[in-house]
Simulated scan of single mutants.
Amino acid sequence: MPVDLWIDEDGLTRRQQIRMTVKDTAQTGGTGTSARQAQAKVVMDFSGFGTQVDVTAPPAADTVDMTDQVSRQSGTSSQTN
């Protein structure tokens, strides 16, 4: 997945931009030849490096791991060897 990064003079990432295309093959029976496509562009700006924060992770019951689903839709594998 292509990612554009903006790095400042201190080597810190200040902006990250991701462009992706997701194909909806469920609508075409999985052939992919006439699948609908959706495009997304996600831009994140980073600031406040070194700021003290107090963060509590949510309970596991309130979370979902979407890694495999996103990997399948993008045509990549989340498995490592």
Rank of each mutant, 00 (worst) to 15 (best):
M1S: 11
M1N: 11
P2W: 08
P2C: 08
V3Q: 04
D4W: 00
L5E: 06
W6A: 15
W6C: 14
W6M: 06
I7P: 01
I7G: 02
I7N: 05
I7E: 13
D8Y: 04
D8R: 05
G11K: 01
G11C: 02
L12W: 14
L12D: 08
L12C: 13
T13E: 13
T13K: 15
R15Q: 10
Q16Y: 05
Q16A: 11
Q17V: 14
I18R: 03
I18M: 14
M20L: 15
T21N: 04
T21D: 00
V22S: 04
K23G: 09
K23Y: 09
D24P: 04
D24L: 06
T25L: 07
T25W: 10
Q27N: 14
Q27A: 15
T28H: 07
T28P: 10
G30E: 03
G30Q: 00
G30Y: 02
T31L: 15
G32L: 03
G32Y: 00
G32S: 06
G32N: 03
T33K: 15
S34Y: 14
A35N: 02
A35M: 02
R36P: 00
R36M: 10
R36Q: 13
R36E: 12
R36F: 00
Q37P: 04
Q39D: 14
A40H: 07
A40M: 07
A40V: 01
A40I: 04
K41L: 14
K41V: 12
V42K: 00
V42Q: 05
V43M: 05
V43P: 01
V43I: 06
V43S: 08
M44F: 14
M44E: 10
D45E: 15
F46E: 02
F46W: 01
F46S: 06
F46G: 00
S47G: 04
G48S: 01
F49G: 05
F49S: 06
F49C: 05
T51M: 14
T51Y: 08
T51C: 05
Q52S: 11
D54G: 00
D54T: 12
V55Q: 13
T56A: 13
T56K: 13
T56F: 07
A57W: 02
P58G: 01
P59I: 07
A60Y: 02
D62Y: 11
D65C: 03
M66G: 09
M66Y: 11
D68K: 12
D68Y: 09
Q69D: 08
Q69M: 13
S71Q: 05
Q73M: 01
S74Y: 08
G75Y: 05
T76A: 07
T76S: 09
T76E: 13
S77G: 09
S77Q: 06
S78T: 04
Q79G: 12
Q79M: 07
T80W: 09
N81V: 10
N81Y: 05
